[in-house]
Amino acid sequence: MARDILIARQVRPLVGWTQSEGLRRLAFALRPLIDKGLDVHDIAAELHSWYLDWRPARPAAYITSHLRQRAERDAEYDARLPHVVHPQDNPAWRAWCQHQQAVKAMNDLITHARRTDEDRRQARLAARYNPHLLLDHVAEHGEDDALDLFGADLTARIVSLSHGTHIQLGTT
C-alpha cells in the first residue's frame, strides 16, 4: 500500500483533474494500473488519454468506474472472438521459425572458433542453398574467414555473382 501511495503522490501533480483526491483513495483507484506494471509516467499518460475536459467531483471513483467499464468491454470482446489461433498453427509461420532457427544454428557454427571439416562441409552445403549466408559472412568476418569456412571455389563463385563480375579470390 505504501508503494501505491508513493506512486499516487507522483501521479497526482501530473494529472490536473486528480489533484482534489486524497492519496489513499487515488492509490486504491490506480492499483489496477500499478498491478499491470505501469510506472508513474505511464499511468499519467493513461489518465491523460481519457481526454477529460472537466473535473470529476470524485476522481478516484471515476477512475475505478472507467477501469471497470473498460475491463467489462474487453471481456465482452474476448468472449465474442470465435477462435483464438495460436501462431504455431500457421504452417507458413512454423516454416519461417524453423528457417530462422536453421539460420541461427548456421551463424553459431560460422562464428565458432575451432572449425572442423564437418563444420566446413555443413557450411558449404548451407551456402549452396542460401548464398546470402556466405555474403553476410564475408561482410561481417571478411573474405579470408569465408575462404576458410566455405572454400575458395564456392566463395569466389558466389561473391563474383553478387558483384556481377568474375574475380579470383584467395590468390596472392
Rank of each mutant, 00 (worst) to 15 (best):
V15N: 02
G16M: 09
G16Q: 13
T18K: 01
T18Y: 00
Q19C: 05
S20A: 13
S20N: 15
G22F: 13
G22C: 09
R24V: 14
R25S: 14
R25L: 07
R25H: 13
R25V: 15
R25I: 14
R25G: 07
L26M: 02
L26V: 03
L26C: 05
L26Y: 00
F28E: 08
F28D: 07
F28H: 14
A29I: 03
A29F: 05
A29D: 01
L30Q: 05
R31Y: 12
R31P: 00
P32S: 02
P32M: 05
P32N: 10
P32Q: 07
L33R: 06
L33M: 01
I34M: 10
D35H: 09
D35P: 02
D35V: 12
D35W: 10
D35A: 06
K36A: 11
K36Q: 10
K36V: 10
K36Y: 08
K36C: 05
G37R: 08
G37I: 01
G37Q: 11
L38F: 07
L38Y: 03
L38I: 09
D39Y: 04
H41M: 03
H41V: 06
D42P: 01
D42L: 08
D42G: 06
D42E: 13
D42V: 03
I43A: 03
A44K: 12
A45Y: 15
A45N: 11
E46Q: 14
E46A: 09
E46Y: 09
E46D: 03
L47M: 07
H48L: 08
H48C: 09
H48V: 06
S49I: 02
W50E: 06
Y51S: 13
D53P: 05
D53K: 05
W54K: 14
R55L: 04
R55V: 02
A57R: 15
P59G: 05
P59N: 07
A60W: 03
A60R: 03
A61G: 08
Y62K: 08
Y62D: 00
I63G: 00
T64I: 12
T64C: 05
S65T: 15
L67P: 02
L67H: 00
R68T: 04
R68D: 04
Q69R: 04
R70M: 06
R70W: 08
A71G: 01
E72I: 15
E72K: 15
R73H: 12
A75I: 15
E76T: 15
Y77G: 02
Y77C: 06
D78S: 10
R80F: 03
R80Q: 11
P82S: 14
H83W: 11
V84G: 04
V84Y: 13
V85S: 09
V85E: 15
P87S: 04
P87I: 10
Q88R: 13
D89L: 02
D89M: 04
N90P: 00
N90M: 02
N90E: 09
N90C: 01
A92C: 10
W93Q: 06
R94D: 03
A95Y: 15
